[in-house]
Write a protein that binds this DNA or RNA. Structure first.
Lengths: 188, 188
DNA sequence: ATCCTAATGTTAGTGGCTAACATTAGAATA
DNA sequence: TATTCTAATGTTAGCCACTAACATTAGGAT
């Protein structure tokens, strides 16, 4: 009856237990042993599903696909502006589904230095992907990396801002505002 | 005779031993116990001088003072452009002294995910400082954070690029190029 | 010479994480 | 239904970063 594989179910059980325990007692106060017990498995099983304790919190999911959108943005734009255009295209679409779960995860992550750091590290993959798209279209590797790094940094600030606030408007509006700062649309 | 305090000397011994061992055998393969032994102290002493194993590598030093420079940059510029101007002012000065030691440390840091992450985390303080300067001059908190985050991300890319290459020209030229991407001077 | 305090040492832990090996669950096949 | 084969899990033992509590020393000030 359960259509999901055993592995996927265990993984979900672990993630649910972890997020619940983290928000109840805090990240540090929660032990992997505890999470595993709560999910009805051993601590080894935890580490077979998540490489580290951090990983349970740091799973963006919608990080890929961004590069693809950048690729379709007009080539004649300045690299930085083009990256912004690409980001805008994706981010305005992907907000409805797990917006609130993202908020929960980010709120947990913000509390803990190690998790904040992990968030930045997780962005690196996306940054690299975007840069590769630009390079493929003739932008210098260096400028490509600078532009994508700057744009993603801006996005990160926006996500943080939105997640830490209680606002009801979609995350996308916040993201849009952040990108405005970069590509000059906000010129007053 | 030794003018430096005992504490400072021990700290230096630990840092030297650590950097040497890290570059010889790698970060993971080097144990804190080993570093302490090499420096002639116990592992507890290590943790009294550095909060974590990472900290021996992640000490920028020239991270402060940046905010001050941003403060003196012309107020009428757009936030992002102004931050770039401030950064340019500082970074062209601070290159001669420990440029090569920075290179060594960054090279060690790049190898290890945890250290990469730590690098980003270390930047947060600087970002916050810059943002506060902008806010004090009337920029909205959100735009201030976005601008400083983006600019520092660009700087980080430049530092990485320079440290990983073998080029002889000063780091400042690389930094300048990165900032060009942001403030549009590079418009072709 | 004596004291006083900062710096260090010792010891005994906790918790994240791994390796090696044993075990089970459950789907496919007969 | 019985068998088998493999992925998923369990057990155990251990390494290492990091901490707490308490004992000790070193070295300057008095």
């Amino acid at each position: 009856m359960t259509s999901t594989s055993r592995s996927a179910r265990t993984r979900a059980l672990l993630q649910d237990a972890a997020l619940r325990l983290f928000s109840e007692q805090g990240y540090d106060a929660t032990t992997v042993e505890q999470i595993a017990r709560e999910a009805g498995v051993s601590h080894m099983t935890f580490f077979r599903h998540f490489p580290t304790k951090d990983a349970v919190v740091l799973e963006d999911g919608f990080d890929p696909a961004i590069a693809a959108a950048v690729a379709t943005a007009p080539t004649e734009l300045l690299p930085l502006v083009r990256v912004c255009a690409g980001l805008r295209a994706v981010l305005t679409h992907v907000d409805l589904p797990g917006q609130e779960e993202v908020r929960l995860r980010v709120r947990i992550a913000v509390e803990h230095p190690a998790l904040r750091a992990g968030t930045y590290a997780a962005t690196e993959a996306t940054q690299k992907a975007i840069a590769e798209v630009l390079v493929a279209d003739g932008v210098s590797p260096f400028e490509a990396r600078v532009a994508s790094a700057a744009a993603l940094a801006a996005v990160t600030v926006a996500v943080l801002e939105w997640c830490l606030s209680d606002r009801d408007d979609p995350m996308s509006s916040q993201l849009s505002a952040a990108l405005d700062v970069l590509d000059g649309t906000a010129r007053r």
